[in-house]
Amino acid sequence: MTAGVLSRSAALVYHLLVVELLFLVTAGPGLAVTWLLDPDVSNLPLAALGMLPAGPALSAALYALHHRQLDLDDLRPAALFRRGYRLNLRGALPIWGSWVLITAFNLAGLSGAGAVVVLMATLWMLNGLVITSLFDFRARDVARLAAYTMIRTPSVTLANLCLLVVAVGTVFYFSEIALLLAGSVLMLALSGNARPLVALVRTEFTR
């Protein structure tokens, strides 16, 4: 029993490390450009462009972690990440890009209402990333399902809100780099949070 637990734990750590490395390779350069820019409104377009590659990378990480195998003789996290990236590139960009635009537009105003909009948009985006990473729907259908499941699966919405609090706390107490280095762990948590959502979509919207 102990050997089995240890082997599965080792396999999970290996998955997380490989997925994190591939996430950093695919999303890191663009995010680095964004973080190096001066915090000025005139830099928002370039900052938004730098953030775009992170969407497909997060989607690929979700796909790889959702489909992970914890058999030490059948570990393929890199292959799963590449497959997820290839399958979800076109689907993830509209959801992620919409969130980036909404966030950039509302943060530029620095108002309380804008902060609420960004929060709701982020919760919507997280649902959308999960759906587009694991299912094959058109972008507009993913957008609708992401909003629908925010209401139909309140436990997922609440769990994701807690995840956002952890992410913001990581940035506040440590740095953006710490959040980036925890990317695969956060995606594993998101995948776990989203189980009721995935079950709902599979039951009600797939054959």
Rank of each mutant, 00 (worst) to 15 (best):
L46W: 12
A61W: 01
S184V: 03
R90P: 03
V156N: 03
V165K: 14
T170L: 14
V13A: 04
R144G: 10
L89F: 06
R82H: 15
L62Q: 02
A61G: 10
F81R: 01
G50M: 03
L62F: 01
L80Y: 07
L190T: 03
F205M: 10
E20K: 12
A115V: 10
F135E: 09
L6Q: 09
H15Q: 07
G30M: 05
I102P: 00
S133N: 00
P53Q: 07
L158W: 15
L44F: 08
V171E: 08
R207D: 13
S59Y: 05
D71I: 14
A64L: 07
A3G: 04
G4K: 10
W35G: 08
L24I: 12
A147M: 06
L87W: 01
I177F: 05
L145H: 10
M120K: 10
L197H: 00
N127I: 06
T103W: 10
G28H: 04
L36V: 15
A54F: 09
M150T: 14
I131L: 02
D74K: 14
L181W: 10
G97F: 02
M120C: 14
L129Y: 00
S175R: 13
R138S: 14
Y148S: 10
M125D: 02
A57M: 11
S111L: 06
G192Q: 03
T203L: 14
P77E: 13
L17M: 15
L44Y: 13
F174L: 15
A3H: 03
R207N: 10
F105Q: 03
P77R: 06
R202F: 08
F135N: 06
T203G: 07
G112C: 10
N43K: 01
G28Y: 11
V130N: 00
H15C: 05
L164C: 13
G183Q: 04
P154N: 07
V5E: 13
P29V: 11
V165R: 15
L36F: 08
V116Y: 13
G91N: 04
A167G: 13
L164G: 08
G97A: 11
C162S: 14
F135Q: 11
V201D: 12
M187D: 11
V100Y: 00
A167P: 13
D71V: 05
G183E: 01
M120V: 13
G109H: 14
L126P: 01
A147I: 07
T170R: 07
P29F: 12
L58P: 01
L161I: 15
S111Y: 03
